[in-house]
Amino acid sequence: MSNAEPATNNVTKRDIRAAAIRYMFMACNTFNYENQQAPAVVFGLNKVLRKIHKKDEDYKASLNNHFNYFNTTTWMANLLLGASVAMEQKDGIQSKDAVQAFKTGMMGPLAGVGDTLVWVLYPTIMGSIAGYMGLQGNPTGAIIWLLLNIVFFFFRIKLFDVGHTSGLKLITALGDRLNIFTEAASIMGLTVVGALIPAVVKMNIQLKYQTGEVTLPIQTEILDKIMPALLPAVLTLVVYKLIGSKKLSLTNIIFLIIALALVCSYFGILGV
């Protein structure tokens, strides 16, 4: 291992940052059904690993190892890959199996929490705010979202560095905290989603109830008196049950709603 020792020292902060950015750019852009994100990992790490593994044979072995199946939330992968680089720096090519075991062992748990936070809760909260403002022609929400993404971009570069310096210990400890964090984010998410139903789902009954001289607009005089946003609430429940029953695909449900709207428009039941 004499040749691995000096290699350890010439990996700079800049190399680590470059590896982070290279991986972040490629992430899912070479995604395939066989080894999923693995090519992106190789693309991201190949420059820094070349500095670590001076011998061509070691370098090939290391990269072939990273060509193995890899898939997790790309934001979280930065932590794992940072720690992997640290392991290879410390033990050279002998760390190969440990790196592989570490990556496959951690990618599942991190994806579970990471996908919920990054791909479900974050877009839900920001999407609700930006989408609602958008309906009024206002881009403010979208601008805030864009700015937050830029903040997270730098945060993720930092995550790679954190993984590299603090390594395995931290990542295992993070698990518990992240679970509570996810629950808390769900609480915020559900409050927003509850508010969204009356705010964005709109149905206006055009029919009027007529007896003799009196005309009674059904929407404003009957439905709204029972409960505001009664129809959107009912529609949400129906679609929720439909999706849950798995009898109709999502695409079919979308086309069903469009068909329903067209029929109601034709007979003047619903208005714009």
Partner: peptide
């Protein structure tokens, strides 16, 4: 006109799909 109106109405109803789908994943 009823057809383009109908599509507009659909546009106001379709957010329900996203909301209902979201509720499947969340601890409702």
């Amino acid at each position: 006109k009823w057809f383009t109106d109908g599509l507009s109405i659909a546009g106001s109803m379709l957010p329900v799909v996203g909301i209902a789908l979201l509720l499947q994943f969340m601890p409702v």
